[in-house]
Design a binder for these strands. Structure first.
Lengths: 305, 305
DNA sequence: GTGAAAGCGCTAACAC
DNA sequence: GTGTTAGCGCTTTCAC
């Protein structure tokens, strides 16, 4: 279909200018005459010139790819909305530049050594760490590489200088405040695991909202981001505090369990009890590690149906 | 932390051999003496040599990255288990070689032109197409690039020579056969959209199983892979065929709707009606396009609780 | 404002 | 089995 791509110097020849000029145009450097620029641009267009990235990054010594390192190779774990959103966001920025996105699944020893090779081969302009577990080896690898590091989501044990994460605390707080403004007063909460960042942060947001409204934050059951956990927690709450009129659940999946139980008990939602939850993207503790994976989440409000 | 990485020729000097020898060792080419190989390997180890990928792919003219092109920038759409599984699988293979995985979100015009640039810049060893919509421009771009193409999941309008996809038909059939072996006889099905590959294939599998067992395949409602759709479809089925004792639902999410309705009607699952569904990872029709996104799915059996 | 030329770090062909 | 060397296609000085 297409002929062999022309090289930069071929373009130069065809356009009747020097390689220097073509290069300047491509990198839109200053000191190029309007005329030369036009000629070159036309030639590029006409012959379908596409720069060779390898040559470019070899010559320029800087390069080229932002690495997305995922400390998990469990599809169920990294197939989640939060990561997808982060990736989508990163991609949007990447598109502006001519960087590219490199994906490295670095859960195994082998994957990790691959990652550190890649980071060291000066092929990476920066690295984003995703799905870190507590005490994750990737943290060290990334730091040791000398490449700029940013975390996607936080875990409890690191407080990264650069990160992107959902506002779990603020989101939880807003969700609750919505119910407060709707007139609810006897709140309870079902929290996520308190050794996960999202679990802690959402609980914090809940307590903040309670404190600000002068309401009691004493009705609380800690749970585990699973549906069964949510269901059990709801049963517990109902037993202890039969008079409650609102529940903030720290994740949708737990809320699903809670809603099932409420329905079974014949309690009308949202008439008798209003429910809000966070659309978590966290998973329950991962198999290999006794610790939980990091939380990565996003809050929303919903007067549950 | 680390000093500047040594280059290959520096390693050669330090090891007291020629660059050719070092290069041979690295690419474990033949004709290297045991002794030389040892010396070089030790030097590589000691000085922490990591090949410069840019230089390598420039010199060798072949390079280096497998492109994962996703025709969607909607996080909700590509955050799904099927893609994650595919990616995980691809990654496992990639790890063996020293290729790398490049991620390109190519839903917008801009993203697409970026993709075609990348494919043309001889930086790609192959490309995998994901989340294609019907009549997707990526198909042409990929084909026109001259790079080997493989599809992840199929859409209805292309029959790619190379693809990876779930066995939707076979999975559906197996799921139903399981219920047949459990003694069910009066089957119904709630299908997915019949303009999506997964919708069609699962329905086909269902009909196959019915045919082989000599059962009627006449109880069918077409639906849309949404929960509400599943619920409505279930209501419809119940009205038309109050005597049915098994339902195959083409996706989990529709099954959720169906189960809710069954519960409301006081119908015991699985006592009175058994339900199986496919753990689809498809989404309902995407916003920008009037057509549905491709299906990407995986079947499983479950006697629904 | 433009051109010429010296590399970037590696591979591959060729000579020994 | 090993060493030498000419590029790969670009960027980047340095002259002009």
């Amino acid at each position: 279909m297409t002929n062999r791509q022309p090289t930069l110097s071929e373009v130069a020849k065809l356009a009747g200018v020097s390689v220097g000029t073509v290069s300047r145009v491509i990198n839109n450097a200053p000191h190029v005459s309007r005329k030369a620029r036009d000629v070159v641009e036309r030639a590029i267009e006409e012959f379908g010139y596409v720069p060779n990235v390898a040559a470019r990054s070899l010559a320029s010594q800087r390069s080229g790819a932002v690495v997305l390192a995922i400390s998990s190779d469990d599809p169920a774990l990294f197939a989640n909305l939060f990561f997808a959103q982060v990736i989508s966001g990163v991609n949007a920025v990447i598109e502006e530049s001519d960087l590219e996105l490199m994906l490295v699944l670095a859960a195994s020893e082998r994957g990790r050594s691959r990652l550190s090779k890649i980071l060291q081969s000066r092929a990476a302009a920066g690295v984003m760490l995703l799905a870190l577990r507590e005490n994750d080896p990737l943290t060290k690898i990334a730091e040791g590489s000398g490449v700029p590091v940013v975390h996607g989501g936080r875990s409890l044990d690191v407080d990264p200088p650069w990160y992107v994460d959902a506002d779990n605390r603020g989101g939880a707080r807003q969700a609750v405040e919505y119910l407060i403004s709707a007139g609810r007063t006897r709140f309870a909460t079902i929290t996520g695991p308190q050794d996960m960042h999202a679990g802690v942060a959402r609980y914090l947001g809940y307590r903040e909202a309670m404190a600000l409204a002068g309401l009691s934050d004493q009705r609380v059951v800690h749970s585990d981001f699973t549906e069964d956990g949510g269901r059990a927690a709801m049963a517990h709450l109902l037993a202890e505090h039969p008079d409650l009129d609102a529940v903030m659940v720290a994740s949708d999946i737990m809320a699903a369990g809670a809603l099932v139980l409420l329905k079974e008990r014949g309690i009308d939602v949202p008439e008798q009890v209003a429910v809000v939850s966070a659309s978590t993207t966290s998973s329950p503790p991962s198999t290999p590690s006794p610790r939980s994976p990091p939380s990565a989440s996003r809050s929303r409000r919903s007067a549950a149906r």
